[in-house]
Design a protein around this nucleic acid. Structure first.
Lengths: 207, 207
DNA sequence: GTCTATACACTGATAGAC
DNA sequence: GTCTATCAGTGTATAGAC
């Protein structure tokens, strides 16, 4: 095999994988794991049915591979925000802006909703609960220390940090659901609404 | 047909319907519409497979009938709370306590989660989106006037009432999802956390 | 009303030609 | 790598005995 051909093959492979993942995202997000069919996914790629199975051994693998990628997105946001300079509360403000924005906009919102599908239906699919648990725990562990810091500075509300964190991320998922309803209501949701769950109402507020 | 027999039949009918709905709730909530099978539901009732089809013409009807009932529960809470005496804000406080409680406790939380399944997967199921839209609109219409009133009294935060209402109910659904994760995190969620979305942080707070 | 057995369609996955 | 054709298994719904 010449290097030329190898490079070509790799590119084709990458293209095909990209198409499949993109199609799977749309179909799984809309119909859920059991509601989606490999036929639908194949049709959405434009490629043939059998070719999908050339790249993925099973429907389950397509789903889990995509889920792994989708769960990475909020983690990337968490890392980006919390590793940047600023106070703990400012970081939480920035995160809220990103999460609310992502839950509304085109592709990110699809990923968010796909994760929601995985969480609601995933208990019957091998590998899915484990993936979700692992990632969710990672979100929490990254988030909580900064929340505690913001509580100490008086900007975040008092209360069990773990409970507040769980509520915060649950809210984000609720907003993803709202966005998927497609009534346009999500456009009016501001980061401030999400932040209100954590904000200390008794403190002085900026003008 | 003697009245005696008729009464007996009606009771049997009611019993069977109750069993089917109860079983369907558990199975649909756990596996979603497409993930659940009529075989599972039949087994969970203890009745035979064919008998389920004696009472319901299709899987879709079982689902929609149950969904209609499930969507009634929050509406009943809304009516109970808002038709009772008290200020608008007190009513919203009471509602929050009920919703948070229901999202945690046994059977109500199953219904909440079943509705979540219907919302995530329902777009492919005839009749489901219509049912959900109708009810959700009813929730909003009942809720918004009281929120506006609470905004005027200064207890609720300023902002688009429709957006705040959408956020509020989205949060409730997020909490239902949290409860279904079964990590026990939901036990630490208080009505106050839900209320914080609507509470005016700039106003004086009770001691 | 209640059950078992079956028809029919569809889906996930594979085989094998090109 | 790409495709079509096919298999085996499963799911909804129905038929018909009791």
């Amino acid at each position: 095999m010449s290097p030329r051909k190898q490079a070509q093959n790799e590119q084709m492979r990458a293209e095909a994988l990209g198409k499949i993942n993109g199609a799977a995202l749309k179909v799984f997000a809309r119909y859920g794991y059991h509601g989606a069919t490999m036929k639908q996914i194949a049709r959405a790629t434009g490629l043939s049915y059998g070719l999908v199975y050339h790249y993925f051994p099973s429907k389950e693998k397509v789903f889990c591979s995509l889920l792994d990628f989708a769960l990475e997105i909020p983690m990337a946001a968490l890392n980006a925000v919390f590793d940047a300079p600023g106070t703990a509360w400012e970081k939480i403000e920035n995160l809220s802006a990103i999460l609310v924005g992502d839950s509304k906009s085109g592709e990110s919102s699809l990923y968010f909703f796909f994760v929601l599908q995985a969480m609601t239906q995933g208990k019957g699919i091998p590998g899915v609960p484990g993936l979700i648990d692992k990632r969710l725990t990672a979100y929490y562990e990254k988030f909580i220390p900064f929340l505690i810091q913001a509580q100490k500075s008086g900007e975040a509300v008092k209360g069990d940090p773990a409970a507040l964190t769980a509520a915060y991320f649950s809210f984000v998922q609720g907003l993803a659901l709202l966005a998927f309803q497609g009534k346009g209501m999500e456009k009016k949701i501001t980061p401030g609404i999400l932040l209100s769950v954590l904000r200390n109402g008794q403190s002085r507020v900026k003008a």
